[in-house]
C-alpha cells in the first residue's frame, strides 16, 4: 500500500488548546480504547532496555500509559521495579489495570500529564511514551516535560520520552509531508490528523448493521529532528535547572541528556537529574 498523506491541521488562535485536545485526542481514545489496545502489545526495544537496567526497588510512573503495556516490564525481573500508570482516558485505564494478564492488578491513576498529582521528586524514574505529541502547543508540550522532571528524584531521577517523528521509516503506512513542505516541517514539526478506522467488533458500542466503519481523526504533533532535545532543555531551564554534564558544574542542580535518537519512526530522549 502506498503511504497515505496525512491531513494537516492548525490550531486557530482563538481555540482553547485544552478543548481542542479533549475533542481530538481524549474523546477519541475513550471511543477506540479496546481496538487501539488490541494493536499495541509489543514494547519498543529502547524502552524495554531502559526499564531492564533500573535497580531493584525503584518506583516510577508512566505518563500517558495507554493500555499499560510497559507496566509489567521488565519481563526478566517481574516485580523488581514498580511502575504506576497514568492516563487521561478512563477506558484505556480499565484495560491497563490488567496489563500482562488478569491474575495481576496494576496500579493506575486517572490524571492529566499537565498536572502534578505527586509529591515532588517522589519517583526514581518516569516514562512518557507516545503521549506528548498529542498536546497542541509547544508550551503545553514543554509543561508536560517539566511535570516529568519535577516528579523524579533531584539526585538520580531518570526519564525516557518517546514521540512520533516526521521521519517515518519505510515500513510505516503513514506519509506526513510532501517534498515541498519538508523544509518548513524539518524545523518546527508538523500538526496532523491521523485517521483511525474503528473495527466494528471492538467499538465501544458495537453495531451489527452494514454501515461503513467509523473513522476517528486523532491530533498529533509530529516532531522534527532535534525538536525533542530542545524541548527537554527548555523544560529544564524553565525550572531553573542547569542543562548538561554534572562534571562541568561546581554546585547546583541539573538535567543531563543521556541519549537522544530516532527509533522506528519515533524520536526519543533520555534524561537524568543530578545535584551537587
Amino acid at each position: 500500500m502506498a503511504p497515505r498523506k496525512l491531513e494537516s491541521v492548525s490550531l486557530e488562535p482563538s481555540e482553547d488548546p485544552a478543548t481542542f485536545e479533549s475533542k481530538n485526542v481524549h474523546q477519541i481514545y475513550d471511543a477506540i480504547a479496546t481496538h487501539f489496545s488490541s494493536t499495541r502489545y509489543k514494547p519498543w526495544p529502547i524502552i524495554a532496555t531502559f526499564l531492564q537496567n533500573l535497580p531493584t526497588g525503584w518506583v516510577g510512573f508512566d505518563s500517558g500509559t495507554g493500555n499499560g503495556k510497559y507496566l509489567p516490564l521488565p519481563a526478566d525481573r517481574p516485580g523488581a521495579i514498580w511502575t504506576i500508570g497514568m492516563d487521561r482516558s478512563r477506558n484505556l485505564l480499565e484495560i491497563a489495570r490488567h496489563a500482562g494478564g488478569d491474575d495481576v492488578v496494576r496500579e493506575v491513576v486517572w490524571g492529566n500529564v499537565l498536572e502534578n498529582a505527586w509529591r515532588p521528586g517522589a519517583f526514581d524514574y518516569a516514562i512518557s511514551i507516545a503521549t506528548i505529541h498529542h498536546l497542541a502547543t509547544y508550551e503545553r508540550r514543554k509543561l508536560a516535560v517539566q511535570r516529568l522532571i519535577q516528579a523524579v528524584d533531584p539526585n538520580h531521577g531518570r526519564i525516557l520520552i518517546y514521540v512520533w517523528a516526521i521521519e517515518q521509516d519505510e515500513l510505516s503506512k503513514r506519509k506526513v509531508v510532501d517534498q515541498d513542505e519538508a523544509v518548513v516541517a524539518d524545523e518546527k514539526g508538523k500538526d496532523v490528523m491521523v485517521p483511525w478506522v474503528l473495527s466494528k467488533n471492538l467499538a465501544a458500542k458495537p453495531s451489527e448493521d452494514s454501515s461503513p466503519p467509523e473513522v476517528f481523526n486523532r491530533y498529533y504533533h509530529m516532531f522534527a529532528k532535534g525538536e525533542l532535545g530542545t524541548l527537554a532543555k527548555d523544560a529544564a531551564v524553565a525550572l531553573g535547572l542547569s542543562v548538561g554534564d554534572p562534571s562541568a558544574e561546581e554546585v547546583g542542580q541539573g538535567v543531563e541528556v543521556v541519549q537522544d535518537g530516532w527509533e522506528r519512526s519515533n524520536y526519543y530522549v533520555e534524561l537524568r537529574r543530578w545535584s551537587k
Binding site: 531493584t56 526497588g57 525503584w58 523488581a80 521495579i81 492488578v105 526514581d124
Partner: peptide, 19 residues
C-alpha cells in the same frame, strides 16, 4: 485484599523513599 508476590529486595529498595 489481594495477595501479591513477596519480593523482599523490592521492598528494601523502596523503603528509603517512603514517607
Amino acid at each position: 485484599i489481594r495477595e501479591a508476590e513477596f519480593n523482599p529486595e523490592f521492598v528494601k529498595g523502596f523503603l528509603p523513599k517512603i514517607e
